[in-house]
Write a protein that binds this DNA or RNA. Structure first.
Length: 488
RNA sequence: CGGGAUGUAGCGCAGCCCGGUAGCGCACCUGUUUUGGGAACAGGGGGUCCCAGGUUCGAAUCCUGGUAUCCCGACCA
C-alpha cells in the first residue's frame, strides 16, 4: 500500500489532511495558512461555482468585480463591521521594494510608504457600498442584484485546508433594495438557494436557521445560515445570507428618492459561500479509502480501466462505451496508461473519488459485459454492455440520492434533544452532533455555555416550533429549543 | 500572544545521548520480467543535515542566539 490514509477512527483531523493531500486536492504553500488548490481540487470547486452561478443568474443576479484593496478608512465607517474584522486584516503599507544597501536582499523601501494604508478585503461590503452611493439616486435604480466571485483574506490564527485558510475563494452577493421587506425576501431567497445547492449538488443535508446576536455577521441585522453536520459530529456553517438593514447605507450615505419623493436609506443584503464548501464535501461523504464525490460534482464521473492492460480490442469497446455515456452528458475517462497495473488504478480512482469505475477485460468482452464498481458502497456488479449507458446514468442518479440519504440519516440521528446540563455535556462528549436544547435567549448565557462546553448555538432553525421550557444552563424560562454543537 | 514539540533527499523518518565527512522506506530515472485489487528484480540520480555564530584537528551530532513549522489554548466562514 503506497498511499495509506489514516483511518477516521484513529485520527479524524489527520484523515482529513490525508484526503486533501492524497486525493490531490491541495498543497501547502510557503505562506502559513495559504494553500495551492491543485487541478483536481479546483475542478470540484469549478463544478460548485458553475452550479451556484447558474442559480444566481436564474434568480436575477449579475456578476461584477470590485477591487482587492480597500482604503483603510472605509472599514471604520460601520462600527460593528470594524469590530468584527479589525483583528484579522492584512494591511498594505508600502508600494515598493529595493535592494538592501547592506546586502541583505530586498527590503521594503521606507520612502514608499502609502499616505493611506490599504486593507486587503476580508469582505467587500464597504467598497461596494461606497460605490453604490454613486449608482443610486431613485427607487428606479433599485434593486441592484450583484454577485462577485473573488478571493478574500482573513488573517486567521489557526487554519486548515479549505475549511479555514488565510486566503480563500468565494462569492459574495451584495444587493440593494427600496424596502426592508424586499431585502428580507432576497435574504431568505438566497438562503434557499444555498440550501438547495447543498442538498441537490453536494448531497449534503443542511439546516436553515438564524444566527444569534453573538454569531451574527458584523454589521448585519439578521444573519441566516445553512448548517451541515460532519462525520465527526462537528457542525459546519456552509453558507450565510445577511439582512443588513440600512446599516451600510447609513455608514456610506446611500440614499434614494422613493415614490413619495422622500429621501430614504437603501436596504441591503449580502450572502456568501466559499471554498470551505469543498472541505464540507470531503467531510460529509468520504471514507478511509479516500474521497467520495457526489456524481453531480465529480470532475470525472466514470473511468474505464482496461484489464489487464490496454489492448486494441479493449480500447475499441471502451471508446464505444465512452461515446454512449458522453451522449448522455456523462463525463468519462478511459485510462490507457500502460505504466500502472489495474490494481493500482482501482485504488487511485477510489482515492480521488471517481463515482463509477468500469473494469473491462477479455473475460468481460467474451461475456458481452463490464464490471461496474460504485464508489459510495464499493459494490461491484457485472453488467451487460447492451444498455450500459442507461445503466450507468441510472446508477449515477442512484448514487447521488444514496449519498444524500446516507448523510441525512446520519445527521437526523445526531440531533439530540436534551433537558439537563448533564445530558447536554454528555451528548457533546460522547455522541456529538447537534444538541437541541432550551436557552433563555441571552448572550450572557450563550457565552457561558460556550465557555463551559465549547459548543455554540449553530442556529435557531427556520420555522422552529415554539415550546415552553427551561434554559439548559440557567433554568430561566425559554420559548423554544435551539441547536447547539461544537463547530469548525 | 501563552504552554509543548519538531526542523536531515520530493514525502515520511533514523542517525544526535557517546563528534570522524550522511542513511532507510516511499517517490523518481534506466532495463528486464510482469499485469482481473496498490508488481518483482537489477542498476542509478538526488542533500546549504533550518539559519548565524562559537567550541574542536574535525560538528547533522556539543554550546549560544535567531527563525520556521506543527500540536494544545484564547479568536474565527
Amino acid at each position: 500500500m503506497a498511499k495509506e490514509i489514516t483511518p477516521r477512527s484513529e485520527d479524524y483531523s489527520q484523515w482529513y489532511l490525508d484526503i486533501v493531500h492524497k486525493a490531490r486536492m491541495a498543497d501547502n504553500s510557503p505562506v502559513r495558512g495559504c494553500m495551492v488548490i491543485k487541478p483536481h481540487g479546483f475542478a470540484i470547486w469549478e463544478k460548485m461555482r458553475d452550479a451556484l452561478d447558474a442559480m444566481f443568474k436564474e434568480t436575477g443576479h449579475v456578476n461584477a468585480y470590485f477591487p482587492l484593496f480597500i482604503p483603510k478608512s472605509f472599514l471604520s465607517k460601520e462600527a460593528a463591521h470594524i469590530e468584527g474584522f479589525a483583528k484579522e486584516c492584512a494591511v498594505v503599507t508600502h508600494y515598493r521594494l529595493k535592494n538592501d544597501p547592506n546586502g541583505g536582499g530586498v527590503i521594503v523601501d521606507p520612502e514608499a510608504k502609502l499616505e493611506e494604508e490599504l486593507i486587503v478585503r476580508p469582505t467587500s461590503e464597504t467598497i461596494i457600498w461606497n460605490t453604490y452611493r454613486d449608482w443610486i439616486q431613485s427607487y428606479r435604480d433599485l434593486p441592484i442584484l450583484i454577485n462577485q466571485w473573488a478571493n478574500v483574506v482573513r488573517w486567521e490564527m489557526r487554519t486548515r485546508p479549505f475549511l479555514r485558510t488565510t486566503e480563500f475563494l468565494w462569492q459574495e452577493g451584495h444587493t440593494a433594495h427600496a424596502s426592508a421587506e424586499e431585502a428580507i425576501v432576497e435574504t431568505r431567497q438566497m438562503l434557499d438557494v444555498y440550501a438547495q445547492f447543498a442538498e441537490e449538488f453536494m448531497a449534503m443535508p443542511v439546516i436553515k436557521g438564524v444566527k444569534t446576536a453573538n454569531e451574527r455577521f458584523a454589521g448585519a441585522v439578521d444573519t441566516y445560515c445553512i448548517e451541515a453536520l460532519m462525520q465527526d459530529g462537528k457542525a459546519l456553517q456552509a453558507g450565510t445570507s445577511h439582512f443588513l438593514g440600512q446599516n451600510f447605507a447609513k455608514a456610506f450615505d446611500v440614499m434614494f428618492l422613493n415614490k413619495e419623493n422622500q429621501q430614504e436609506h437603501v436596504w441591503a443584503t449580502s450572502w456568501g459561500a466559499s471554498t470551505r464548501l469543498v472541505g464540507g464535501l470531503i467531510m460529509t461523504h468520504s471514507d478511509d479509502d479516500g474521497l467520495v464525490l457526489p456524481p453531480k460534482l465529480a470532475p470525472i464521473q466514470v473511468v474505464i480501466v482496461p484489464i489487464p492492460k490496454p489492448a486494441a480490442e479493449l480500447t475499441e469497446v471502451a471508446t464505444k462505451i465512452a461515446a454512449e455515456l458522453r451522449a448522455k452528458g456523462i463525463s468519462v475517462k478511459i485510462d490507457n496508461d500502460e505504466q500502472n497495473r489495474p490494481g493500482f488504478k482501482f485504488a487511485e480512482y477510489e482515492m480521488i473519488g471517481v463515482p463509477v469505475r468500469l473494469g473491462l477485460g477479455a473475460r468481460d468482452l467474451a461475456n458481452n459485459q463490464v464490471e461496474v464498481a460504485r464508489r459510495d458502497t464499493k459494490e461491484k456488479a457485472n453488467v451487460s454492455l447492451d444498455g450500459i449507458a442507461e445503466h450507468v446514468a441510472n446508477l449515477l442518479d442512484d448514487m447521488q440520492r444514496n449519498l444524500f440519504e446516507r448523510a441525512k440519516a446520519y445527521r437526523d440521528s445526531h440531533i439530540t434533544p436534551v433537558d439537563t446540563w448533564e445530558e447536554f455535556e454528555n451528548v457533546l462528549e460522547t455522541k456529538g452532533g447537534f444538541v437541541s436544547a432550551h436557552w433563555d435567549g441571552t448572550s450572557e448565557t450563550e457565552l457561558a455555555i460556550k465557555e463551559r462546553s465549547k459548543a455554540t448555538i449553530r442556529c435557531i432553525p427556520i420555522d422552529n416550533p415554539l415550546e415552553d421550557g427551561a434554559c439548559i444552563l440557567t433554568g430561566n424560562p425559554s420559548t423554544q429549543r435551539v441547536l447547539f454543537a461544537r463547530a469548525y
